[in-house]
Design a protein around this nucleic acid. Structure first.
Lengths: 344, 344
DNA sequence: TTGAAAGCGGTACCAG
DNA sequence: CTGGTACCGCTTTCAA
């Protein structure tokens, strides 16, 4: 059977509430009794029931990270875990230091509506605060639900500022601009952009950055629709190669797509970067080891996690965190976007 | 304020227990009252508190998937989410159909001891059953804790059979054998194996399969230690290229490592597969699009998820699932392991 | 300081 | 069929 607190209390020969206080280091308990209780707890291998604890205390001790996206989708999730890892780690660590627990609520965008899940979280006792990481289109229903929520929220990389939710954003637009500019500086004359999945903020921001750079250079934008996976990158690149004025450089929505694109290019007997330069996005672990190695943009996951933790803890402490934090991404130039010297 | 069941009952003008029954479709409630209760619930935007529900019912309704591994590690997690996705999906779906909820407990092997986390899960009200997916060395402490657990357990790809825990395994050994045999059949004379991380069952099984195939062909095994990430694959390959009798084919522990290896080979001015053939493991999404595309082994994640769900539900129904299920992997032959015809 | 008792939000048994 | 009531395991007043 389950060992309960009252078992411990009985064993230690003290009252229930004393046992509770002793274990929680709250309120007054004499050293003597505390020791007895602690020993009893160990002897009985007692472990508190978090459910009961939370239900009784109403002291929400967990912070929910609400992630929606096509988590688990073979097509495009390759970089997902990779992206989340450092963020989870940093966020979880900082939050734990403040005495909270990180609860990760994954929500696949293809099963059920995010708003429903949020509704559930909203009512559940568990959440002191919610971190939103929504990688799907924001519809009215979702926004509606968000407005109902009364615990502090912080959003990561999704445009929720208008709801007054503090935002932690990586500067995707700026990174897209930098990446495109890098291609422009490299002397490429026809630079295309292979877009990410439609209707995603992450996609839009890349497009905007790309367009800004192109406009500033008075160059004509050229785009294909795409996705975050290599399959789509492959076919999108083939489309790009079929047009009359082939691009000689492509800024891809992410590394996976770029890898697909690279294959398409080489299948046509063309070379990266001699015929077509490539820049990806994300710096997934293999990118550095491709041949040619892939130029890309590295997002500051760890700093984002830390910033998120700070913002959430600020909220919880009753302070107002900055409305928006824009954390720069790093452009990583590798072989795929640097013209090779002509060997004589 | 929180809307509770008693608010709903009051609003509907019925007793608390009636309201509970109406909402749960359990026990007898007249259609009339049920409608009233349902309407009241909707009107008040009532949502049940899962904590209280579980605490009161003691009817464990969630199945915990306990995963330990270096989840979140930038170095080697690329394939992790990709691997888990389909498994989660299949498992979650089948379990949901039976009225359970899947609770995913991620446990990084580098933070805290798995046994501690298990101890917590053990006592928590939430778990009707536990699925173990342990990708770290099994030490005494962990085995000890496992033995204490009294809810049904099923293990995925970890050697826990001796504890009497039903196992769902993908046939890694068999796949390694097939992969090596494929290289042997291809006429490669010096076939090496680049190992996975030390002390992991997954690593051992690959080694065993490799050795079996080599022994059957009376060839001399040749191994380097490695890991699951491209960095290590890269340096391990360089080591392999430094020995006198260079291999002309390498079976790598996974695709990421193979990609690192491929880079090392090409940096030496050698070609894949003409000078050295490569076979990976996992079939991560980009593998098909590499140049040359990577031969690899695809694990049956979806079937594993389904089999796991079946086993767990069997346990829960009081039946005894098979002690061990071995699900075959699929060898996928691509360019990296097929000698190209000499063009004349 | 300590412990008895009143919940937290539900579920389930039992008498009506 | 229905509603009162005793818990689930723990926290938290509030007397003692």
């Amino acid at each position: 059977m389950r060992v309960t607190l009252s078992d411990v209390a009985k064993q230690a020969g003290v009252g229930l509430s004393t046992a509770s206080r002793a274990l929680n280091r709250s309120g007054y308990v004499s050293e003597q009794l505390r020791k007895r209780v602690l020993q009893a707890a160990i002897a009985l291998d007692y472990y508190p029931d978090m459910l009961a604890q939370q239900l009784a205390s109403d002291r929400r001790r967990t912070i929910t990270l609400f992630e929606v996206g096509n988590y688990g989708n073979v097509q495009s999730s390759q970089d997902l875990e990779w992206f989340f890892g450092p963020l989870h780690k940093a966020l979880g660590r900082d939050i734990a230091e403040a005495g909270y627990e990180l609860n990760i609520a994954l929500q696949r965008s293809d099963e059920g509506h995010p708003a429903q899940v949020l509704a559930r979280i909203r009512r559940s006792h568990g959440s002191a605060a919610i971190v939103l990481f929504i990688r799907s289109p924001l519809d009215a229903r979702l926004v509606d639900e968000l407005a109902q929520i009364d615990v502090p929220m912080v959003s990561i990389n999704c445009p929720l500022e208008r709801l007054g939710i503090p935002a932690i954003n990586s500067d995707i637009r700026g990174a897209a601009l930098k990446a495109t500019q890098h291609l422009i500086d490299g002397g490429y004359s026809r630079i295309a952009h292979m877009q990410g999945p439609a209707h995603l903020p992450a996609t839009e921001l890349r497009i905007i950055g790309y367009e800004e750079a192109m406009a500033a250079a008075k160059m004509t934008p050229m785009m294909v629709e795409g996705d975050f996976d290599p399959d789509t990158g492959y076919s999108a690149m083939h489309k790009l190669l079929d047009v009359e004025q082939k691009p000689n450089a492509v800024f891809c929505a992410n590394d996976s797509a770029a890898i697909g694109a690279s294959r398409a290019i080489q299948e046509r007997g063309l070379s990266v970067p001699d015929d077509i330069a490539l820049v990806g996005f994300d710096d997934i672990p293999v990118s550095r080891f491709l041949f040619p190695s892939l130029s890309t943009v590295r997002q500051p996951q760890q700093r984002m996690g830390e910033a998120t933790a700070r913002a959430i803890l600020d909220c919880l402490a009753g302070q107002t965190p900055p409305k928006e934090l824009l954390i720069p991404c790093e452009l990583i130039v590798r072989e795929s976007s640097v013209p090779r010297p002509i060997l004589s």
